[in-house]
Design a protein around this nucleic acid. Structure first.
Lengths: 207, 207
DNA sequence: TTTAAATTTGACCAATTGGTTAAACCAAAT
DNA sequence: ATTTGGTTTAACCAATTGGTCAAATTTAAA
């Protein structure tokens, strides 16, 4: 039955996502993924022939979660300030739902930067629509118009994403040192940061 | 001979640092470390009984590289603006020399947050001198004096460290997307960011 | 109901892995 | 020269790991 098939495939993907994102490619065990999916290990290899192939699927899905919203916001007709506000708001919410993904992606890309090239080759549209260039043009246009202080867009983007992502990937160390490992306190910290980061960025660039 | 001993131990540590920091605890192989150190694998276990123990040593050394400078700057008598400037300048330079460490530390702490607790237990002085509290007091004092805009020190610290560290740990993805994977261009980007981040932070908090 | 294809499983395998051991080696003290 | 202690090695081991395979089971079509 097709439903059974889809179900098994889904159970595998969910289990694989959990295990790979928590333990990384080298730390993940096929047996653990099979157990978590409630199936035989041989069935894992029946659906995804190798660990490598299963990992690639998981990585692609993790990576692609953050693409559509980015495109939607960046390609909209809003002015820069609004785009930045939407971007920060949306991505911080997205990260609350998927806190393991950024660390997972960053770590695996450090292990093997080639993965990114493969993803771009498979999924041309991501690279092709040149999101960054478009945003850069808009920023520099608003700089000319005197709305924004002169700023390099690459530095600006790095700042925005860094301020969003860093507290998530470095959570264990920040929570440990500055919050005495208090989980609830850190969750509250992350929550208040949404408005804080927006104000921080906007204030820093408005003319 | 004691010299030989120290030499072997040093060769092991150097090799272990390379392999662990590049491949992580789970990806590292004792055989590769032995090969890189130019010794027999059994000798590895003769000096450091288990992979776990060797890893702990490497992690501790990596972690401790970033402590002394932080203490020196934070405990000095400089005003906040100068401290921040020194901090950013020094840590960006330090990261240029040890670019693998932040990703390594972040990744291993996500895998096993307990490591941090163990380090604090072993090295009480790090936790005990309450660096953060002292800096917090100084910041809030300067806020009262009207030198700095009102700001939460935890957010400020997170911003500072995030802006420094993020471009290093996320290098593969930023370099890939914004710099067409051009290594030299990205090195130049990192270099110009030293002054950029200092100005960015100072401007954002000066009253 | 029969049949053929797809799905699932238990048993198994070869390679890799962290770790051990007994013997060899080597420098320094006697 | 011999002994003694730490150092280094080759050979080995048990456990783990990703992966395979033939048989069993389930599913859907004829």
């Amino acid at each position: 039955m097709v439903n059974q098939q889809k179900d098994t495939e889904q159970k595998i993907m969910n289990a694989a996502k959990d295990v790979f994102q928590q333990k990384g490619m080298t730390g993940a065990r096929m047996q653990e993924i099979a157990d978590k999916a409630g199936i035989n290990k041989a069935l894992l290899h029946y659906y995804y022939r190798t660990k490598e192939k299963l990992f690639e699927k998981v990585f692609e899905m993790a990576f692609s979660i953050f693409i559509p919203k980015m495109q939607e916001i960046m390609l909209s007709e809003k002015p820069v300030f609004e785009k930045i506000e939407f971007f920060i708001e949306n991505y911080m919410n997205l990260l609350t739902k998927h806190p393991y993904i950024p660390g997972f992606v960053i770590n695996e890309l450090n292990r093997n930067p080639q993965i990114l090239v493969n993803i771009f080759e498979k999924n041309v549209q991501i690279k092709e629509n040149k999101l960054f260039e478009k945003f850069d043009n808009q920023v520099q246009a608003e700089v000319q118009m005197g709305i924004i202080k002169p700023i390099d867009t690459k530095n600006l983007m790095t700042n925005i994403i860094g301020l969003i992502v860093f507290p998530i990937v470095a959570r264990p160390i920040i929570q440990g040192i500055m919050f005495e490992n208090d989980k609830k306190q850190y969750d509250a910290f992350l929550k208040q940061r949404k408005d804080f980061v927006i104000d921080f960025i906007i204030n820093s660039i408005k003319a």
